[in-house]
Write a protein that binds this DNA or RNA. Structure first.
Length: 677
DNA sequence: GAGCACTGC
């Protein structure tokens, strides 16, 4: 491959050694390297220590501080400790630090507890869904998912126990991060003493600055926001671009792997591609071509990693590389922020990512391949500089890099906002269209959400939350299953729908895989099939990992479904909803599903495709559905994903008479105008 | 005939 190493980007420029996660792996390495030092000495060696006083000064003086933190500089673990040491937790006040991912919240909390030599759950705690580990009376530093802090605004709209709230990884712009950014701005008006720290790994600090700055004069010395940049502690990564754009990035990636393998010193490689198909093909092709390497050459070992793999398969990438072998990890975006692999020296970036988008026109989600952002490309490159200076090969030209967006489109601008709108209304924010979002979602997305909530009778004609239904939905969106005497079954189905990859194909042939799936399948459709899978897991499977493996089921997903179900059950009990079982009466379950998903109804066409009742949009059954090869005249579906075609996922056969029986009001929506909001 | 990655009640 012909790569151009631009003279303008010298090794070690700051641009490409940032964007790193302080994950558990990172922390472990650090501890091992410095095990002869005391914890306090280690803390002082972190690059951030030099900025300790300045950070404290800025937080004291400014309402909001934006911290542009580079790779592994220690901001996540150190800043809350500095604030604690400086007295920000006096008088029973708490410092919160939010993370977009659950693992980050728990592992960082554990690290900080051990640095402070306290028991996790006492002075230092964490809060993630299903796992709260903190003491309301003792905890001073609380790591939590952004979703959990958002939930806390329901109980305490001013988040009054917190003196400082640090929004970490804000550059990722997760859905809940964006909502929190807006809510915190609102809270700060009422609580001027509240300090906000926005921590971001990229250069978009200006956006945060402008959003939080309330100084309307031209005198910038009156700004109430400050910015500080911290230096990182990773190694420089040399960036290489293609001279000419390539036709086929999969082929280019494979060629680049062999170029590196033949010409470059030892060190593992990671390739970023967009999806499973590409990854499986690439792994196969590398294995194939590796047979043509000379006998004396170093061996090459390609390994796939994506979310759909079983956990055993995922763990393989963490095994130490065998002697005289170069590991090539072929990954989706999972390795960009969620998973960190040690020993990577070379990264190959195809320049694309698969993203989910939501179309307000059709109400459909689509999964499309789009170019990555500059921030993502930098984050990917940074993965090569963890243990020694690395090299990044971008499978596009330098010119196309500069044409990329600075950061990716925030999730809030490409999501189904029904839940978000419901929650904002429940917080008393009636005019959601005027809510101060840092980057407002398109109006059509909001209107679509309002329309859906209105048709579900969660909003009244004035766009207000109805009592009690809308309020209950906001608190707990499992629909009124008690009316159908099947709450037991609905709890299971709701829990199963909220986990991914229930079936995983680990190592067996696809025919065997389909056979295993068929054992759980029923003619009514996917929802009842999921119910069967869960019940079998509990009874026949005795909740065992071994049993799951034998039946191509994802043990982790089913265990998670089990705990989600327990949590949902507690909520139903709190509302005094009678929890009954309908036994084998699937009509009750399917009617109940229809009452919640009547807007997602479709009718089969003579040619075998489907059309939605509501918008007459053409849809197809997803090949993963148990109804794929069956005759299903009328169905309701959980979601639509548009890839090569518009596919319905998770469907159930219904009787069309149920629709008019259960949702006569829904069809009025076309005749009347939208409710006011 | 096909499955980016996360989060929450």
């Amino acid at each position: 491959m012909a790569f151009w190493k631009p003279g303008t980007v010298a090794p070690g420029t700051s641009v490409d050694r940032e964007a790193e996660k302080e994950s558990s792996e990172n922390i472990v390495t650090f501890v091992n390297l410095s095990s002869n030092l005391s914890i306090q000495q280690q803390r002082k060696r972190l690059p951030i220590f030099k900025s300790r006083d300045q950070v404290l000064y800025l937080v004291e003086k400014y309402q909001t501080t934006i911290i542009v933190g580079q790779t592994g500089c220690g901001k996540t673990t150190q800043i809350p400790q500095y604030l604690n040491e400086a007295g920000w937790t006096a008088g029973d006040r708490v410092i919160a630090c939010t993370q977009p991912r659950r693992v980050a919240a728990t592992t960082v909390a554990g690290r900080v507890a051990s640095e402070m030599n306290v028991k996790l759950g006492e002075e230092v705690g964490y809060s993630i869904r299903f796992d709260e580990c903190y003491d309301p009376n003792l905890t001073r530093i609380k790591y939590m998912t952004d979703g959990m802090l958002f939930r806390e605004t329901f109980l305490d709209p001013l988040l009054s126990q917190y003196s400082v709230i640090m929004i970490d990884e804000a550059h990722e712009r997760s859905l809940y991060t964006d909502i929190l950014l807006g809510i915190l701005k609102k809270i700060q008006k009422k609580r001027p003493e509240l300090r906000i720290i926005i921590s971001s790994a990229t250069l978009d600090a200006e956006v945060f600055y402008d959003f939080y700055n309330t100084n309307s004069t031209n005198d910038s010395s009156k700004d109430n926001v400050s910015i500080i940049s911290l230096e990182g502690r990773t190694f420089p990564v040399d960036i290489h671009y293609l001279e000419e754009p390539c036709q086929d990035y999969v082929e280019s990636a494979i060629q680049t792997v062999f170029d590196i393998h033949v010409k470059e010193p030892p060190g593992d490689i990671i390739i970023f591609l967009t999806g499973r198909d590409e990854i499986d093909n690439t792994v196969g092709e590398i294995l194939q071509r590796a047979t043509t390497l000379p006998r004396s050459a170093m061996k090459i070992m390609p390994l796939p990693i994506y979310a759909g793999l079983s956990s055993e398969q995922q763990m393989e990438i963490f095994e130490p590389t065998p002697f005289n072998t170069r590991k090539v990890v072929v990954a989706t975006n999972i390795a960009e922020a969620s998973i960190t692999i040690e020993g990577i020296v070379y990264i190959i970036d195809c320049g694309f990512v698969k993203l989910r988008a939501f179309s307000p026109k059709t109400g459909m989600e689509s999964l499309t391949v789009v170019p990555v952002s500059k921030a993502s490309a930098q984050q990917r490159a940074g993965r090569a500089g963890r243990v020694m200076p690395g090299k990044a090969y971008r499978l596009y030209t330098e010119e196309s890099f500069y044409r990329l967006r600075d950061s990716s489109i925030p999730e809030i601008q490409r999501s189904n906002l029904a839940q978000v709108v419901l929650h904002l209304k429940a917080l008393g924010i009636d005019n959601v269209l005027r809510f101060d979002f840092m980057t407002p979602p398109p109006a059509e997305l909001m209107i679509r959400a309002l329309e859906l909530l209105y048709s579900l009778r969660a909003l009244d004609d004035y766009g207000r939350l109805t009592m009690p239904l809308g309020m209950q939905l906001a608190e707990f969106p499992l629909l009124d299953s008690y009316q159908f005497q099947c709450a037991e079954e609905m709890l299971t189905i709701a829990a199963m729908l909220s986990v991914q990859n229930v079936f995983v194909n680990s190592s067996t042939s696809s025919a065997e895989f389909e056979d295993e799936k068929r054992k759980f399948s029923v003619e009514e459709g996917d929802h009842i099939t999921l119910l069967n899978v869960f019940n079998a897991f509990i009874t026949r499977g005795k909740k065992s990992a071994r049993w799951c493996h034998q039946h191509c089921l994802n043990f982790r997903a089913l265990s998670r479904a089990l705990s989600i179900r327990q949590q949902l059950k507690k909520y139903l009990e709190r509302f005094d909803v009678p929890i009954e079982s309908c036994g084998n009466d699937t009509v009750k379950i399917r009617k109940c599903l229809s009452s919640g998903y009547f807007a997602n109804a479709a009718k089969m066409q003579p040619n075998g495709s489907f059309r939605t009742i509501r918008d007459n949009v053409e849809l197809h059954i997803h090949p993963s559905s148990v109804l794929f090869t069956r005759n299903a005249p009328w169905v309701i579906f959980h979601e639509v994903v548009e890839t090569t075609k518009a596919f319905m996922r998770e469907l159930t056969i219904i009787d069309p008479a149920w629709l008019t029986e259960l949702a006569p009001h829904f069809y009025e929506i076309k005749k009347t105008t939208l409710p006011a909001h």
